[in-house]
Amino acid sequence: MHVEIDTLTVEIAGARLVEDVTLRAGSGQLVGLVGPNGSGKSTLLRCVYRALSPSGGSVRIGGEDLRSMTARESARRVAALPQEVVAEFDFTVAEIVAMGRLPHQGPVARTTDEDRRTCEAALKGVGAAHLAGRGFLTLSGGEKQRVLIARAFAQQPQVLVLDEPTNHLDIAQQLEVLSLVRGSGLTVLTALHDLNLAALHCDVLHVIDGGRIVASGAPHDVLTPELLAEVFGVRAHRVPHPETGAVQLLFDRLRSA
Rank of each mutant, 00 (worst) to 15 (best):
I213S: 12
R146N: 02
C119R: 07
L195V: 11
A129W: 09
T112W: 04
G133Y: 03
L200E: 11
V222Q: 08
S184T: 05
D221Q: 14
V204N: 03
R117L: 15
L195I: 12
A150H: 05
H104F: 06
L186H: 06
E176C: 06
L139H: 13
R116P: 00
A129I: 01
T224D: 07
A154G: 07
R146A: 06
R134I: 08
V108D: 04
T224L: 03
R134P: 09
D194G: 08
Q155N: 01
L102A: 13
V222H: 04
D113L: 15
R117W: 12
A154H: 01
G183M: 10
S140G: 02
A122T: 11
I213T: 14
V159Y: 09
V108S: 07
T190Y: 07
D209S: 15
L162Q: 10
L175N: 07
V161P: 10
P157Q: 09
A199H: 03
T118F: 11
G210C: 11
L137Y: 04
L131M: 06
H201P: 02
A198R: 01
S179C: 01
A199M: 01
G185A: 13
S179I: 06
D113T: 10
A128P: 08
R101M: 04
L223M: 12
V181F: 07
G106S: 12
N167V: 00
F153P: 01
H193Y: 08
P103I: 07
L205M: 12
L123Q: 08
D115Q: 07
G210N: 08
R117V: 12
A152S: 14
Q145R: 13
G127F: 11
D163Q: 06
L178H: 05
A98V: 14
R101E: 03
L175F: 13
V126G: 05
C202G: 10
V181A: 06
D170P: 09
Q158M: 08
A215W: 12
D115H: 08
G141D: 05
T190N: 12
P225R: 05
I208Y: 09
R212M: 04
L180N: 10
E176R: 10
R182D: 13
G141T: 02
V97C: 12
E230P: 02
T187H: 05
E143V: 01
A122F: 04
R134Q: 11
